[in-house]
Nucleic acid binder design. Structure first.
Lengths: 242, 242
DNA sequence: ATGCTATGTAAACAGTTGGCGACTTAGGCC
DNA sequence: GGCCTAAGTCGCCAACTGTTTACATAGCAT
């Protein structure tokens, strides 16, 4: 018995994925960014042309696949099918599979880094993390953090990843009082990185461990425990702690 | 320019991997389980036969590859080359790539579950986790936790993964006072799963994020912060916490 | 030695994958 | 209309991947 690659059909909480053999259902219509195929695209209809839209569709589909299955496990054909788009267009718009992944990563980093309220506090960073752990208003899980964990092996993508990690670690550490070259506060960097680990660990186990309580927890459910963790790690304790 | 699969050369902290083109250096000698090729295997020497040994070599090499690169990204030829063994032997001894992965997973679970001191305490679980986060006496990083995060997509392997997660979550939760079907202690399950996330998050970021402080931290360095986290999550706080 | 089996080797196979080049066509502009 | 370019399609390929098959041989019992 050969364990063939699973062409799984995702039925996420809010329809993360539509069925596998999208091609039959979609083409030749206009690629749609989200949810069910729009009513308007008749099966025999005319393929409309909209470069920006197809680009977005590809990005969206790629984000989901990459985040969920990892880089190596997803094929460009998977992505194209999900997006309801011809495979060759991936290379047209993103040069290569690596290019597409890098585009996903870049967009994810932008999303994660958007709210920079100048003065960081541990509390604010905690809320940002919470927002990216839990469900979006649209009902979809945020994929940015997850994407950051899916390495492609490509050098330039890897650099983006590492820079992002370092950037957030430093922001978090700084919010907790860490200052560069200050040996006195050096331990805070490690603690900030551990705090970061918590977030990534949660997002990973939420999506891949099958732990019921964790994967179904809402932002509100996580707020309490996660607040305790951040406080224990980064808030100066009453009794001095090396 | 085609982004070819990187046949990287691992030079781990304690020589996790030896160079990529092992075949030239190793064959035809006896496959060796660890470290540098033993002095005794002359290049023109006779290939010795030792099924148990080659099995172990394959397992070891597979563990490293799977844990480090993920299931999909590692090829059976990679593993065979690392182990200094013919590719076909993977299928002989483990039926398939999936079988080999499952064997790795099973062994990892055994290692993780070894010390069951009957009565679990949060403190003991913390120490167990610490032991699997930090370096082994041999100088190698423990790969068990990491392997648990690398899904193969195979149904039976996935079941092992999930059962292991659930098992440890319940052990940890129980150690903190959780009792099945006791709504009063239900919140402890979520907290235990978050505590688990911390461990997995750390092991993941230690190996893939390039965060210096974290990846070079010793068990002793982690003990303090991690102890704080576990305490904040699982030790009953003086002021009641829902 | 003779045979037998466990072990190991080499080559090939069938399916998949990412990428590319030649082609078609929609839609705007003159 | 005629033309042009961007957008999309189609078929192919070379490389790679997991697996199998046919073959070689070491070690051992007889």
């Amino acid at each position: 018995m050969i364990a063939r690659k699973s062409k799984h059909v995702y039925i996420g909480s809010a329809g993360l994925y539509r069925g596998g053999e999208r091609k039959d259902a979609m083409t030749p219509g206009m690629p749609t960014i989200d949810a069910a195929p729009s009513e308007s695209d008749a099966p025999g209809g005319v393929r409309q042309r909209d470069a920006a839209n197809t680009r977005q569709c590809l990005l969206q589909a790629a984000r989901r696949r990459f985040a969920h299955d990892g880089y190596a496990a997803t094929t460009v054909r998977d992505i194209a099918t999900d997006a309801g788009v011809n495979v060759a267009l991936i290379n047209r718009y993103f040069t290569s599979k690596e290019g597409l992944f890098e585009a996903c990563l870049t967009r994810a980093v932008e999303e994660l880094d958007r709210p920079i309220p100048e003065s960081d506090t541990v509390e604010l960073m905690l809320q940002t993390m919470l927002r990216h752990l839990a469900e979006l208003p649209s009902g979809e899980h945020p994929l940015g953090l997850l994407l950051l964990l899916r390495s492609s092996g490509d050098e330039s993508a890897e650099r983006i990843r590492r820079n992002t990690f370092r950037h957030f670690a430093e922001r978090l550490a700084a919010a907790a009082g860490w200052r560069p070259d200050d040996a006195e506060t050096e331990h805070l960097m490690l603690r900030a990185q551990i705090a970061l680990s918590v977030g990534f660990g949660i997002v990973l186990l939420r999506t891949t461990s099958g732990l019921e309580a964790l994967s179904s927890a809402s932002a509100g459910d996580l707020a309490g425990p996660l607040g305790d963790v951040f406080a224990a790690l980064l808030e100066p304790a009453p009794d001095a702690r090396p």
